[in-house]
Amino acid sequence: MSAAQTAPVRSKAFLAASRLGAGFGTSLAKLSREPLGMFGFIVLAVLIVVALFAPLIAPFSPTAQNLPNALQAPSWTHWAGTDEFGRDILSRLIYGTRITVQTVFAVTIIVGPIGMLIGIVAGFVGGRTDAILMRITDIVLSFPSLILALAFAAALGAGLETAIIAISLTGWPPIARLARAETLLVRNTDYVAAARLYGASPLRLLFRYIAPMCIPSVVVRLTMNMAGIILTAAALGFLGLGAQPPAPEWGAMISSGRKFMLDNWWVAVMPGVAILITSLAFNLAGDALRDILDPRHDRS
């Protein structure tokens, strides 16, 4: 008995790790029943690996110009062809994943906590706080993110950081609304009532009781949002407001490929395909995540 009493203290970390492993295992088992979601996750995993090891994977430098070799059609040396400066498009796409992953994660890390905090505070406190926060949310929601990014680029100069800030600024309201709706549901449950009875402080209620219930739907929503972020980032790049040349941003690559589109289709199409597949993968992964995390949408 004494051994059993000391054991939990020692093995708390081990226990947490084994629980996490078990939870991951069941999630993986659920995922295996969703081939499309599995495809989405695999594509995302590949994307991240490629981004991490871009210098090792890319066959050529993304910026090295080779003018005699310009506008080559796809071949065994240049799988995706070359652009107007003779740069290998595949290598540029591979390096481009770094920009894409960076944008997506930066925006998500900014948008998720801000949106959630505003949403759960508005929902939990209610009254005037709720009204003020939600009206701000409505106002921000009515800004078109592209126009705002244009304004930002004009004020701060075009660049990847500006693009990230601009997308984040318009990205949090949907998250805030979602978190608020979840909070309103959770706030009136019996388990929160019970917690009030045993004296749980408002902060404890917010972080221990309400936030955990909002996280699954927020994570799902964020994953779905990532597809939109990629498209917006590409659009900004296309307009010349994202990452600046010679950085291999996918949107900017389409933009420059536009001029040669009729004769040299691959210059614009290859980055287009990359954007399409990545954004599709995020959508599929988001859908699968919802089925795993949110039992309310269970289809079976």
Binding site: T189, D190, Y191, A195, Y198, A200, M213
Partner: peptide
């Protein structure tokens, strides 16, 4: 202290039972 009607909604669904039981102690 109070015991509620519906045991399905009166316990936090994402807390383990041990967490459910220590919450009153830690809150107080």
């Amino acid at each position: 202290q109070m015991v509620f009607q519906d045991p399905y909604s009166s316990i936090h669904p994402r807390h383990r039972i041990e967490r459910v039981l220590v919450e009153p102690m830690q809150s107080m």
